[in-house]
Amino acid sequence: MKKILWLATPFVFLLLTGCVDSLFYWGKYEDSLIERYIENNNAQTEIYLHEMITEAEANHQRVPPGVCADYGFSLYQRGDKNSAMNYFAKEKSLYPESIPFMSKLIERVSQQSSLKPKENTQ
């Protein structure tokens, strides 16, 4: 019995510190911003953000505020407007505080999408 308790102690400790440590799953969030702001490498930002979202979901942890919006914007920047709008909508459903801002973004991106076929025919 004692042996089991001793074995369990580090795990309990890990669990406890895990809880106190962070309310959200952060993955490589700061790195994603460094790539964007300092290295000017949007492609790497996109990879890090996507990793964060899938890893958080796999671990059943919360994706922090703004990450889905950030990822959506990355997708928008490289022209994937439909996926961008999906991630803006995801941010909205995760965090109601973002609803006014995300709704505006979705509206603007969808207006641009409807213009796109015209641009292509020219």
Binding site: P65, G66, D70, Y95, S98
Partner: peptide, 21 residues
């Protein structure tokens, strides 16, 4: 500096708008 501001503020329990966006 801007790369470091989001996490500590979010960890205080606030919704923080994405800084880059």
């Amino acid at each position: 500096f801007l790369t470091t501001i989001t996490r500590p503020l979010v960890e205080r329990g606030y919704y923080v708008f994405p800084v880059y966006l």
